[in-house]
Design a protein around this nucleic acid. Structure first.
Lengths: 212, 212
DNA sequence: TAGATTGTTAATCGATTAACAATC
DNA sequence: TAGATTGTTAATCGATTAACAATC
């Protein structure tokens, strides 16, 4: 594998390729050209070829790409061939929704535990998983080799919780708290700032109003 | 206001400026220079000035920006000075979580109704709001002048529900369904593809593994 | 072999950063 | 007025698109 850094713009497009290829595969389609994929996905064929070639040659000249093979390769690039141990920190509505939502399991995300600082929730079962007290989180992360923490707590506590996670060996944080986390290099943070997303929507609704 | 199109890259940064300025305001800070903001937000001062100047001159040479004023102006740009009527389509875990989560209300997002196609949920109260049958959605959107629909249904139904929403005058769709919607120009779609986001995280976790 | 389509280089476009004149 | 900092133009950087030679 090459050593040159791949831009986050490319990475951000990979899951979408993965999704479309999975659908094509489910439809029993064996082969696809960059031009055909371009038509379906509404991105340029040129971009598709450039993107794939960041990771080596997946296609065959004169033939195109094998759907199944490409699907699997992109899955590997995204790390979906590996198991990830995951906890949810914050058992409020959003945390519970994500826990239930987690048919992520079939993608190798193993839901190992759930934590909250509210004693009223201790022991509550969500998807066969009892909510544990926040105090137990650090030891749990260490002892169970948790890779990923899903942060669904209010912004006030998020920074200090993130620090504790980092100290105990977490590798990635999926951050739903509305605050920017500052973590050391090598620890990955992926932010899902829902209200930012909603504001983008209102901007665009509004902009269109004014233009017409 | 200028007529030149503002890039989505700029728009995507506005909510973050808005958040930081809100925090500064809450701390009682009255004025800030692009350089100070640059230090706090870890973006270049140059970018900050360029971004703001897309919308006109908000600052004063030799002085900087008035925090309160800038905060409010960005809020207006994002359309947060207007009221938005919103429904949630899909009363599953995620839909319920978003409904409860909705202290969005103080930002002018008025939660007007919730719909599901599962009869077992009809009448269930979520935040003083009964879940209505999906069949009632179209008339409801029309009659209550709903601007925004939050789509939290499985991908299978999402495309056809989106069409119905569009036909009845929706202006924006906040799409949590794992599918790309195809809407006519003038209708805004903001996607929140959670599994895409999680895959970006695993890519980055994985990449770092291999580099070291 | 001829046709198709990739892989890859070159050209273009757009976004970010740097520099500095304008001005508070 | 002198100093500070914006607004804005110019330079740079990176990402996207176009073109085409390589090759299946």
């Amino acid at each position: 594998m090459d050593n040159k850094e791949i831009s986050q713009a490319v990475i951000a497009r990979l899951p979408r390729y993965f999704r479309y290829l999975g659908e094509l595969r489910d439809e029993g389609i064996e082969r696809i050209s960059s031009q055909e994929l371009s038509d379906i996905m509404k991105v340029t064929a040129s971009q598709i070829r450039q993107d794939f070639n960041n990771f080596g040659g997946f296609g065959q000249q004169g033939y195109g790409y094998k759907v199944e093979y490409l699907y699997e390769e992109i899955g590997k690039i995204l790390g979906l061939d590996k198991l990830h141990h995951l906890i949810i920190v914050g058992a409020g509505n959003l945390g519970q929704a994500l826990a239930n939502y987690m048919n992520f399991e079939r993608r190798g995300f193993l839901f190992k535990g759930m934590f909250d600082s509210n004693p009223a929730l201790y022991g509550k079962k969500i998807r066969d998983m009892q909510v544990r007290p926040m105090e137990e989180m650090e030891a749990f992360v260490r002892e169970n080799e948790i890779d990923i923490a899903v942060l669904t707590i209010p912004k006030a506590g998020a920074v200090s919780v993130a620090e504790k996670l980092v100290q105990n060996g977490i590798r990635g944080i999926w951050n739903f708290a509305h605050v920017d986390l500052n973590v050391p290099p090598g620890i990955q943070v992926e932010n899902v700032h829902l209200s930012d997303s909603l504001m983008k929507l209102t901007y665009n609704i509004n902009r269109f109003e004014q233009e017409t």
